[in-house]
């Protein structure tokens, strides 16, 4: 069923406007057999194509057990996403995927999980948070640290509030620029790391967001004594093919689309943070 070279059609079942610039699409393959056979892991992505315009790499955000549909949350940044924004239920897009390596779920079993994310609702990390919380018993403490630039940028605010009420789930938020109704921290997401009581020997970390943010978080985590192999992060690069052939997404010897987008920090240590690499 997996055919990476040509898109297969999917129908938009539902569309949700998450914020002025972010929307979610619930999709189903037109071919029901293909939909039934579609399997993915949290952190993997699809190439979503808009008729006559182009393709973009978008993370899959729903739970892998949902076999009748798949969800994409998309931020409007360029030509293709601007076009996708206009689509309505019943419209069709092309899908190639799923591609890449997802989050290290097996390694996280029985561990505390620290999730650090910056930017406008980092979709790859949201997918793994939902995954962990739906299988709560398999994991230890869960710390969710989210940073945004402006307090108004936070999407899924109710979701963060709901997550924070879960047993053993610690939600900390920070905004560079707070607003009047912002009950959380003002500052950088990395400042939140010191507020977490980390059990280093049984903690695994998952990061997603701007590279400068991840770089600062990694430096801080390593200083606290967290081993490199317990730090995982999701990378973003220009992608065309999705299966390690077109060459655009390379970071050192790695194809981000095929070997990532989720990497263990020890795989990237030689290159991560080198400007323009």
């Amino acid at each position: 069923m997996f055919d990476p070279h040509v898109p297969h059609l999917a129908i938009i079942d539902k569309r949700v406007q998450e914020s002025p610039t972010i929307f979610s699409l619930r999709l189903q393959y037109e071919d029901t057999d293909r939909q039934e056979a579609f399997e993915f892991a949290p952190g993997q992505f699809n190439m979503v194509s808009l008729f006559g315009v182009g393709e973009v790499a978008i993370s899959i955000v729903n739970d892998p057990e949902d076999s009748h549909f798949f969800d994409h949350t998309i931020r409007v940044v360029g030509r293709v996403t601007k076009g996708l924004e206009k689509l309505q239920p019943g419209d069709r897009v092309g899908i190639r995927g799923p591609f890449g390596r997802g989050w290290p779920i097996d390694e996280a079993m029985g561990q505390d999980v620290l999730l650090v994310t910056g930017g406008l609702g980092c979709a790859p990390l949201v997918s793994v948070i939902r995954y962990l919380l739906r299988r709560r018993d398999h994991f230890g403490h869960i710390h969710i640290l989210q940073g945004v630039k402006h307090a108004d940028d936070l999407i899924w605010r109710e979701q963060y509030e709901a997550w924070s009420k879960d047993h053993g789930v610690n939600v900390l938020l920070a905004a560079d620029v707070a607003s009047r109704d912002w009950p959380w921290q003002q500052g950088l997401v990395t400042e939140l790391i010191n507020q977490v009581n980390l059990r280093l020997e049984r903690t695994i970390t998952m990061l997603c967001g701007p590279e400068m943010m991840m770089l600062a978080a990694i430096a801080q985590l390593r200083e606290l004594g967290l081993a490199d192999h317990k730090i995982w992060l999701s990378m973003e690069r220009n992608m065309h093919c999705g299966y390690g052939q077109c060459g655009h997404c390379q970071v050192g010897p790695h194809f981000v689309c095929k070997d990532g987008p989720v990497f263990c920090y020890s795989e990237l240590a030689d290159f991560f943070g080198a400007k323009g690499f």
């Binding site: 360029g78 690069r237 220009n238 390379q250 050192g252 010897p253 323009g276 690499f277």
Partner: peptide
């Protein structure tokens, strides 16, 4: 456009592009 990310280029400088080519070709 090779490293185009929508709002920025990962390798905007020629030094970064030559480095990408040479390190990939010979090491990566």
């Amino acid at each position: 456009t090779h490293s185009e990310m929508g709002s920025f280029q990962v390798r905007s400088g020629i030094d970064q592009r030559y480095r990408q080519w040479a390190t990939h070709k010979l090491a990566g």
